[in-house]
């Protein structure tokens, strides 16, 4: 696990329909310490997914720099694990093989990478599902696989792009609680993108509010861990923080 530094990051692209250049991300700077859990929250179109895609190396940035453990990002790489909203599991691989994929790419031999995969599957309570194919699982279970597939590769930074947006509300709450538990156990450096203010406050050490491609504010979340919805639903501090972030995002 390493830290992540973003300096004056920007993304400008040519919009062929408007016939002009559009700036999706405007001069964003952000430092994420090793082992920190940062949520970037903002409405759709605020540039948060663009930022994540640039950190992941899926799209090039047009200004500024992105450093993971001091090294500049050039394209996708195993130092940055990604969890996708659409899960993006390999349908032709079993759950076990999906989770073992990263280690396999590193050249870890079969027995060892399956041991690693089983260990991570157990972490997400997926041991029973090891031999099944993704299409045979519910959305919630698929995304559990997505999370541990990224973690099993032991990336320096874990990038999560609205990972729980496409599962039902009850499952989402369970997944959020599990994620905080797994994070406490493994302490990865996490950047989590969401438009859900409560989700951001529930999960993060820090919430970065974003609007129109700019950082509005950076709010520390000092809620105690482990966190659960039962405990936080009526928590005054949780409500206060959520209210603050919501106001920020809405006023912009």
């Amino acid at each position: 696990m390493k830290d992540l530094t973003i300096r004056n990051l920007s993304k400008t692209y040519f919009d062929p329909y408007a016939g002009t250049n559009v700036t999706a991300v405007h001069d964003v700077s952000l430092k994420v310490e090793q082992g920190e859990f940062v949520c970037i929250v903002g409405p759709s179109g605020c540039g948060k997914t663009t930022i994540l895609n640039m950190i992941a190396g899926f799209i090039p940035h047009t200004g500024g720099e992105i450093l993971v453990g001091g090294r500049p990002v050039k394209g996708p790489g195993p130092d940055r694990g990604v969890v996708f909203q659409s899960f993006a599991l390999f349908p032709w691989r079993t759950v076990l093989e999906n989770v073992a994929f990263g280690p396999k790419m590193r050249g870890v031999r079969k027995v060892e990478r399956e041991r690693i995969a089983h260990e991570y599957l157990a972490l997400a309570k997926l041991t029973e599902a090891a031999g099944r194919y993704p299409a045979e699982l519910s959305g919630g279970m698929q995304q559990r696989v997505g999370v541990v597939r990224a973690l099993a590769n032991e990336p320096d930074v874990l990038l999560m792009d609205e990972p729980f947006a496409s599962v039902d509300a009850q499952t989402r709450m369970t997944l959020q609680e599990e994620l905080t538990r797994i994070w406490q156990e493994k302490r990865p450096t996490v950047i989590f993108i969401t438009h859900d203010v409560q989700e951001a406050v529930f999960l993060a050490n820090r919430v970065v509010a974003l609007s129109k491609g700019r950082v509005l504010d950076d709010i520390a979340v000092d809620l105690p861990r482990p966190r659960s919805w039962d405990a936080l639903n009526d928590d005054a501090r949780f409500k206060e923080l959520s209210g603050r972030v919501l106001q920020l995002v809405r006023s912009a």
Partner: peptide
């Protein structure tokens, strides 16, 4: 093949 699936493979270290 969804772009995200290719991206997932690339970010897991697939050459």
């Amino acid at each position: 093949i969804p772009l995200q699936v290719r991206n997932a493979a690339a970010s897991l270290g697939a050459g």
